[in-house]
Write a protein that binds this DNA or RNA. Structure first.
Lengths: 175, 175, 175, 175
DNA sequence: CATGAATGAGACTTCATTCAT
DNA sequence: CATGAATGAAGTCTCATTCAT
């Protein structure tokens, strides 16, 4: 059996992604991780602390999956297009749960800078991901914003329709 | 003094928009609205019910403000551009609180169809708003998605930078 | 059955006096008072709040008992002497638990001014009790201090010995 | 660097005197003493055990300071008076924290005989201190009790007023 | 239509102590 | 003798909702 800390992180990964931050209580986490409550607090100063850890793990996971997903593509253009396909893949896999980072952004008080900055940093990385591929600040942000909308709108409408539309738009722009 | 129901709705309007759904308790609402608890439940079956009412009021308010904001513009193009300026205006006014609808989307359990459908309907109306202006399904959705990102990214980074960028992009596209 | 609030106050009265402030948890109080946890917090904002209420009730009770105990005495001198006998009576009744006010004084952080001032006010009243009887500021404080020591030393040694000694001293001084 | 045991005892000395028994956790002690948890339990069976050690150290310290403080005085009378000045000195030094022994008396369950007897023994020594100086059982206890009140009342009112009053009373009695 | 007491189920957190390494 | 992860039990407090008046 894995260490309590590992079990906590794993379960948190699942639950925060599936149910969100506020809907997931410490009690559920420790009960599903089969860990004593005090063991939890040995490793994490607070729920907020756990949230930061979760976002870090999620960050690694998400970019890992994304890079893996587009790795097989050769051309720049198809890499970009595949990034959108990655969203479809994730929606299928995670049942249109949207972006964990943006979801938590909505769930925390606006003045929680500790968590906010982790989220900002994740999105800054994503913005940079497109910048490095496209090497044109304005166009890369254009794609980034269509990408962001794609995530949100597919979460909202439980449908990949607008992802596909974005793909088409980007395809046309990218010539 | 206004009726209890009106007072509840008004206070809820302020509090949900400012603090979010989960961070606003029934107790705060009834105390600030100076209404008895059971009077509250006379008018609203549950907090969820109140949320639906809030979203409806917010919908009216938001589109009202938007239409008023762009009414003075004559040309189609400047109407669109001004819609983005409206976001800047709202951010200033509401301190980068983002979109109430998307925020609540993140705060509720995924299977809450009652609230979900109100949010979907609001965004469908917004999508239609651009469609009616632009009369081109693909292009209007393109603008819609940049508009949505603009809201979210400005909330995330507490900055209007990407709204301005979107404006520039749209300006170029719209020729 | 009495109201929840009454039951809480009664049980608290017993438990704080018997076990002290820190050793008595909210859980024990509500379980013995057969009250829901949230009912408790309907009536008392916090444990500190309950403590203030307890001290007020205790204040009334303690002075009530004291005055009743010495009421039968005619002469000033015998009233004073009987006040010390009251301590013996209370020790017997409450098993040498000492002064609730001084006990709590030791249990709270030094900067808790809310509770501190209630304790100070109780002791100021006691000091005044002797002043009104004796009408001589220095002598009344002398008696007050012997009275205070009597309480503490009898708590410490679980014995009325020093109360009796104080009685003798005061008797001799009072001629 | 001193031995772990010494470091524990030193830190405990500071913390128990400053914050009290219940407000000082084992974790704070070991962290400030820079000692491993199990090392702590190597040396002390329990927190209660540590408390006993603390009281012993405090006993030595307190009487050491007291005796040193009054050593310079020649006459019996001025030794007694100076004992009261010692209380003023300690209040200034320790910010009206009162008597560590009486504070802990209030913080422990009444049936904790192990700690109780250490406290009793300390106060018996103090009572004896006055007896040896004054050689008159009744008068020495009279002074002892004024001394005890002086400590407590100055803790309660954060003021040396009643110490000064006691000094005056004792001065008059002592002729 | 108004009142506010009462509630069950949960929230998050900390305590002193033990144990495997 | 040192380390720090793991623990059970308990801590205080808040939630949306119901009910008797």
């Amino acid at each position: 059996m894995k260490s309590p800390r590992e079990r906590i992180v794993e379960i948190t990964f699942e639950l925060f992604a599936k149910q969100g931050y506020n809907s997931t209580g410490i009690n559920q986490i420790i009960s599903e991780a089969e860990v004593a409550k005090a063991s939890f607090y040995q490793h994490f100063k607070s729920k907020e602390d756990l949230c930061v850890e979760f976002l870090k793990v999620r960050h690694e996971y998400w970019f890992g999956e994304l890079n893996h997903f587009i790795a097989k593509e050769k051309s720049l253009k198809s890499k970009i297009i595949n990034a959108f396909d990655f969203l479809v893949y994730m929606n299928e896999k995670e049942n249109f749960r949207g972006c964990s980072f943006l979801n938590i952004l909505s769930e925390i008080p606006m003045d929680n800078t500790k968590i906010l900055s982790v989220i900002q940093s994740h999105k800054a990385d994503l913005r940079n991901f497109f910048l490095e591929l496209l090497d044109d600040n304005e166009f890369s942000d254009h794609v980034y914003m269509l990408f962001e909308s794609s995530i949100i709108e597919s979460q909202l409408f439980k449908s990949n329709e607008l992802i596909e539309k974005s793909k088409k738009i980007v395809t046309n722009l990218i010539q």
